[in-house]
Design a protein around this nucleic acid. Sequence first.
DNA 1: TATTGTTATACTCTATAACTATA
DNA 2: TATAGTTATAGAGTATAACAATA
Lengths: 149, 149
Amino acid sequence: MAETAPSDPFQAEPALASRLRLAVVRLNRRLRAQRTDSTVTLTQMSALSCLYKFGPLTPGELAAKERVQPPSMTRVIAALEEHGLASRRPHPSDGRQAIVSITDAGLEFVRAEVTARERWLDHRLAELTDAERELLARAAEVIDRMAGT
Amino acid sequence: MAETAPSDPFQAEPALASRLRLAVVRLNRRLRAQRTDSTVTLTQMSALSCLYKFGPLTPGELAAKERVQPPSMTRVIAALEEHGLASRRPHPSDGRQAIVSITDAGLEFVRAEVTARERWLDHRLAELTDAERELLARAAEVIDRMAGT
DNA sequence: TATTGTTATACTCTATAACTATA
DNA sequence: TATAGTTATAGAGTATAACAATA
């Protein structure tokens, strides 16, 4: 049944790119599955966090920061508006643009961070050692920097 | 109330769960965007790697290992079969089940690992320091373990 | 009746192409 | 003509529900 794969590089010493890729794909999948309360999706949360961090932005700026194409961001912004977490107003000097801001409800939502998704990950993190959590904290910075390149 | 954090925990000292979540969401997005050669998607690659690592598995076992629901895996297996990277044969003793194996072409594909996606990540990794790569290698193990919980 | 897997359907996420409005 | 944004459309990824086949 199981013919073991002898002396192959992938199993014995998988390349870092592969290991990291698989780890990220799988954790992303698990995170997206945690949406039982589901007021806001993972993608919307990411954009909302961006508004929280950087303040009001145009749709184009938001798309650039999140590294998605403008049409993708259009839909995310529409969803955030529907939920009352972000609002849009006209640009003061350029009629083509808009300014998207986080609302008070959005601020509260980001600060609360009590989604099922967050709880699931919090529980997983709580099972780790202090050293492992420290490791992940530093890795998260490196990963985010790479993803923003 | 859970008043366990300072007034602005997210921006000043973001919780580990949030930082890791955002980092994973964003790197996943970048990885999925790298599919210019696109013979095999990221999800298919993940399942193929699983067959490579563990040997022949039933669809149910594969779904369990990848932490997806069986109908999702049905589609992934069908795509891998279409590409000639995996094959299915009847279970010897249980007519309900099947055995999915990686083919020679699939082995070659996994070993080659020369997709555009992989190259993109390789380049990003090459820009890091040795210490950062070591950090990510250890983090990948922890992340994969958490995702498999 | 329980288990394994597939089919049908739907929703999220994201992209590219085409369009509108403004500069 | 160039830029910012939206609409239209499509494909990947995933889920749940309903079904068929086998145990």
